[in-house]
Design a protein around this nucleic acid. Structure first.
Lengths: 205, 205
DNA sequence: CTCAATCGGAGGATTTTCCTCCACTTACTG
DNA sequence: CAGTAAGTGGAGGAAAATCCTCCGATTGAG
């Protein structure tokens, strides 16, 4: 996977990126022909590199996760929990957008598919780091104690998922803004208590 | 449309409801056979009542809009703008979930399809009422002035849209909670300024 | 009880999606 | 700057999903 010819590698990357966008928008069942078209690449190239849909889905998830986990590691070293958390989220907006397809991979997990070793490892590390950041922010009194790491995860997935058929530039560019609003809503301050129960990360498996 | 036999009316309603859920989840191109199946009704029944996909999409949008506009009218008479706004949102969560299909109808508008008279009328009234509620909340200093009615509309559509293949009970039931977090984030209080520009409702047409 | 309205869903037509195959192109290597 | 192994695109047939008609069975209304 590392020793590809330059053009091959380029096309592979394009495919993963296009697939991430399309999966995020339309779910993991989006037609592969369209992935190829969006990537500006022939279908033959797609099927040569990814023998079946699952291989592509896995590649998308792992690629995104790798970067997101990188961001989370960096955030763990931040001065305080809250700024670590917001820093992580902001840094990851782009990757999470790709990684919204990640939530689909969770869906696949629910659907009973096996994850390969690296995938599972990354997922677990991300979950641990996220929980740690949230705990820290809670401890500092910077974050509403009723808001859980699971709430955060779900809200990120929801808000970063593009609306189908939307005006891409317009709504897409607004993601950072909307995420900022959501983060504000998670901040500690004297509001009414939230309805319902916190989502635990474990509930999301 | 009013003088249907009892069973016919019941089935029609079931169809609209099932279609709303499916359109919200998978976009307005979701297979009609599955709409029928989810509604517990034969395909024949579906095609008899809605000659083509567009008729069904229109019915979903108008039905949802009617109820949402009703809520908005009620909210316009609230004691203050902010409670009117939150009241409206909370009351509409169920309908907006259905009406997430509404955002698809916006998408169809973008795609260049004509809306019938009632649909357009409802849309315009909702936009006006929403803008009015937000203006009032702004005037009272209860809502962050940088958050626009368009921001609100888009965030609602995003957060209420179900994740595909998700654990339906779990994530579905959390909608109210997540909406509450978003509303908190829109409240006036001394936070950092939001990045980006406010979304105007007119930008969304 | 009658019957016109309605229902369900089998199944053929149509469209979408998959995915192989190969003649042509391109990056690397000596 | 060839030679060549690796890579490429996309036509097109197979397979699957989706559409949507049709009709014998069922059911609500008077």
């Amino acid at each position: 996977m590392a020793d590809l010819r330059a053009d091959a590698r380029r096309n592979r990357d394009r495919l993963v990126e296009a697939a991430a966008a399309l999966f995020a928008e339309r779910g993991p069942d989006a037609p592969l022909d369209e992935v190829a078209r969006r990537a500006g690449v022939g279908v033959g190239t797609l099927y040569r590199r990814f023998p079946d849909r699952d291989a592509l889905v896995r590649a998308v998830a792992v690629t995104s996760l790798r970067r997101v986990v990188g961001n989370a590691r960096a955030a763990a070293g931040a001065a305080d929990g809250w700024s670590g958390l917001t820093g992580f989220v902001r840094a990851s907006v782009g990757d999470l957008r790709l990684a919204a397809g990640l939530s689909m991979t969770f869906a696949r997990t629910w659907a009973g598919l096996r994850l390969d070793a690296e995938h599972e490892e990354l997922r677990d590390e991300l979950v641990a780091l996220l929980q740690q950041l949230v705990d820290r922010a809670h401890g500092e009194g910077a974050m509403r104690p009723e808001v859980s790491a699971g709430d955060l995860a779900v809200l990120l997935a929801l808000v970063l998922r593009p609306l189908p058929g939307a005006p891409p530039a317009l709504v897409g560019g607004a993601a950072e803004r909307h995420i900022a609003i959501v983060l504000e809503g998670m901040r500690a301050h004297p509001g009414e208590p939230l309805p319902g129960d916190p989502l635990l990360l474990d509930d999301l498996r």
